[in-house]
Design a protein around this nucleic acid. Structure first.
Lengths: 342, 342
DNA sequence: TTGTAGGCGTTATCAT
DNA sequence: ATGATAACGCCTACAA
């Protein structure tokens, strides 16, 4: 495919123009798919490009266009698997294109969050940025992108933005459905571990729980509610509190899998058998869900597919206009859920 | 810090030159820290740069230098936490510089692995690339980097390359020490789960086990050896095999934490108590190690620090000459190891 | 120590 | 539909 030897310089647009007997600008038009081009000319140029193995130089394009072919991924999500899945999803969408993915972890609590993002965008002039929750829920960041004239897509679990800037999952409905599943197994007293305040996903998942409780007339009250921050440790603490209450819930829904693993940990410490004495459902379908014992029933969050869609929205203008992108989460049934007994 | 309004164009080197009353070239010399510069001139220019908030345009620099300010991270490691830790380590090293991190997952078994990397380097002309194991162990990729005149650093668990191109951990010695710890707790029959063939890290860790067995005269033979590919599932299978042997090992060392979690799973299925009836040690100190029950003793692999060092080697020429970078792994003691009984 | 002229490889403007 | 010329913002070679 590439039989040049070391350091023979790569062909430039000038070489193509000369060999094709046209001007640089015409070659440029071919590269950029200009509509006003004689078909014969186009084919001739295309042929020379192929023969030479010519590839336009992204740096030069970036300078002339004042816009880089970089997709920035802005995230502050603490979950490694989520972040990696998103990266792979984005890369899948831009495979074999001139685009590259650059990584920008941020701290959404830092006072210079906005300054950092501004510096990045002004300096690198990325083609666009994709934002992961929870930082994607920050409207100030989106406003900054608009101010800087930088294209962006936000991933989230609610209607955060207009359709061209949004890829959304339906967490609320998915949790409602999961709780319904527990109720169908006979559970009436179902504990709920919310995610951290300030996470929209946490809010949506809690809303789904509330919907189900109201709809099905399940037990309610402060004893069945706790909150964590999506980490194993906080899940452990929250689970301990719920399990030490009397009467104890027969099932617990955790707003993510890491915390659910913490609940399992708490149950084991107390000699509570899962699923015999306690059913648990998590959220995300992270790898840990399948790896703990017993394997955890969970709501699959199609984050990689969402990321792929977000990248396509950024890169393909037609795709951006194609309307809202809503991704459905579904329940994965494993071994951590059983019927109530007693 | 930045009080310009929307779309006032950013200052260029020309603006700086004009206001400072010098030529572009002089400004350029200031930017690039040229030694032959009158101190007064330098200060004057620096002052104007600060006053204007001037930042050199990376795209223009890339075009002129024929080299981008991108660090490529080439990896095919399946472990999300490892990959993310490496990313954060690299980003920590290049924070507040003009460098950016771009992500290149690859498939080391793909026939066009080299073509893909060649295309990336020729097209993007990154400042340098960092390679994670196991793809870092592929000498053909390193040779390609040299051929393309692209700086690179390999991360690995053995002396894969010359010092300027290598950041190394001492897996062999660390495993030897961990096995020694088990022996000190009275274990004589210690099972070993190797990593996948073709991983240098797997080879090194196995060598460390062999060293310890020979040194301490521990039990040996095929019944105490199994192999997995660093995933939970293969750890489960390998652990099952070891635990079904007679006599059964009183301790198992797994070449990574994921597989160790699989061993724990296998033990639980058989009613074997950990650590009472079986001690387990893993490798990596991945988050899962602290999250499973009982918390897993493991060898910490300082991968983020290694990544940081790799990035510094790439970015700072002085650092690259500073000699070999060897990182020590140490044993983290948690609750999965106990003394033998019976 | 500093400046001038020209080039890096592409796209934009405005002709023709 | 195509081309000449001038950007884009910086750096290198050479000159002063």
């Amino acid at each position: 495919m590439n039989d040049r030897k070391k350091w023979e310089p790569k062909p430039t647009i000038n070489d193509v123009a000369r060999l094709a007997g046209v001007s640089k600008k015409t070659v440029s038009r071919v590269i950029n798919r200009s509509p006003l081009l004689n078909e014969g000319t186009r084919e001739k140029v295309t042929g020379v490009i192929a023969a030479l193995g010519y590839v336009p130089n992204p740096q030069a394009r970036a300078l002339a266009l004042r816009r880089n072919f970089l997709i920035g991924l802005i995230f502050d999500n603490p979950n490694a698997q989520t972040v990696l899945n998103v990266q792979l999803g984005v890369l899948d969408a831009i495979r074999d294109t001139e685009f590259e993915l650059v990584i920008r972890p941020v701290d959404r609590h830092s006072p210079d969050l906005l300054d950092g993002i501004r510096a990045f965008i002004e300096m690198q002039r990325p083609y666009g940025v994709i934002m992961l929750p929870p930082v994607s829920e920050n409207d100030a960041v989106a406003a900054l992108c608009r101010e800087l004239d930088c294209n962006y897509v936000r991933m989230g679990s609610a209607a955060l933005d207009a359709a061209p800037h949004l890829v959304q999952s339906n967490d609320r409905q998915a949790v409602d459905h999961a709780i319904g599943h527990l109720a169908a197994m006979g559970h009436r007293r179902i504990g709920f571990i919310a995610g951290p305040e300030g996470f929209r996903s946490a809010l949506e998942r809690e809303a789904g729980f509330n919907d189900a409780v109201a709809r099905l007339g399940l037990d309610s009250g402060p004893d069945i509610r706790a909150r964590g921050n999506y980490t194993f440790e906080t899940g452990h603490v929250a689970g301990s509190r719920l399990l030490d209450a009397a009467p104890r819930p027969t099932a617990i829904f955790s707003s993510n899998d890491e915390m659910a693993a913490g609940v399992l940990h708490a149950a084991r410490e107390r000699g509570i058998a899962v699923p015999d004495d306690l059913s648990i459902i998590g959220f995300d379908d992270a790898p840990i869900a399948a790896h703990i014992w017993p394997p955890l029933s969970t709501v699959r969050w199609p984050i990689a597919a969402m990321a792929r869609a977000a990248a396509l929205k950024l890169v393909d203008p037609a795709d951006a206009q194609a309307g809202p992108s809503l991704f459905m989460s579904d329940l994965i049934e494993r071994a951590s859920v059983g019927t109530t007994r007693g």
